[in-house]
Amino acid sequence: MTDLATYNFAYLDEQTKRMIRRAILKAIAIPGYQVPFASREMPMPYGWGTGGVQVTAAILGPDDVLKVIDQGADDTTNAVSIRAFFQKVANVAVTTKTKDATIIQTRHRIPEEKLGEGQTLVYQVPIPEPLRFLEPRETETRKMHALEEYGLMHVKLYEDIARNGHIATTYAYPVKVEGRYVMDPSPTPKFDNPKMHMSDALQLFGAGREKRIYAVPPHTQVVSLDFEDHPFEIQHFDKPCALCGAEQVYLDEVVLDDRGGRMFVCSDTDHCEDRRAHGHVGHLLAQEAAE
């Protein structure tokens, strides 16, 4: 009777789950296409990841191991409360280790560690429509998606270069999925865009307030838009992580005191801890150890 025990598992009622799963299946079938769904009220405010929580609740099973990150960190308010929520309503195993997790709900970051087959990344999306600020009419943007009229997206990039001399968009950087739909990868930094390309993991996007679900299935092309003479580039940091010494990772700036002291540390806390456990030491940690 284990089947009965999982009935109404993980907060949502069965009809809602069925509706969300159908939206997810449709989204996976049409990579990058925004599928409307009847988003429910969740016990948290809009903007806190109501879309992501609904997607996670719809795909979560009793055997899953859940990891929740917010800005790459496992220990920030949003991550802690959503993790606690699923522990309470579904009693699932949770983890902070990227490689142990089967479902990772994220806001803003893709973990540094390469995701593998069988893992699912669930994004919390505030504004799913990449054309929103260029064309406010939803009827028009849907038509533009349908007819593949994406010239306007490049107008935005053109404006960036005209004003700043380079493409100054650093997050929510538009991508083209499988050569068809232009998609907003939610407010992840463009540093993470290349990780979406040909990923082994399934990527699901849920926007609760905007009532849209979209997806990038495994092994799908995800190409960041650019100009021939202004190619897409990710952010570069001139210093390694102050705690673990990692390079080629996304760093957060942390102010240390009121005299201008600051450090750059890994935004992915799990990655940073893992490296330190393996004996990697950044300059600040080395300094502290010396004192």
Binding site: H154, V155, Y158, A162, F227
Partner: peptide, 27 residues
């Protein structure tokens, strides 16, 4: 016109819509 984007982008929009992807040429 698109009142909130520059004159250059206004003129260039059609070019970008038909697939021109070279900033220098568009400008």
């Amino acid at each position: 016109l698109r009142m909130t984007v520059s004159a250059g982008a206004n003129v260039g929009e059609r070019l970008m819509a038909v697939g021109d992807r070279h900033y220098g040429n568009i400008r």
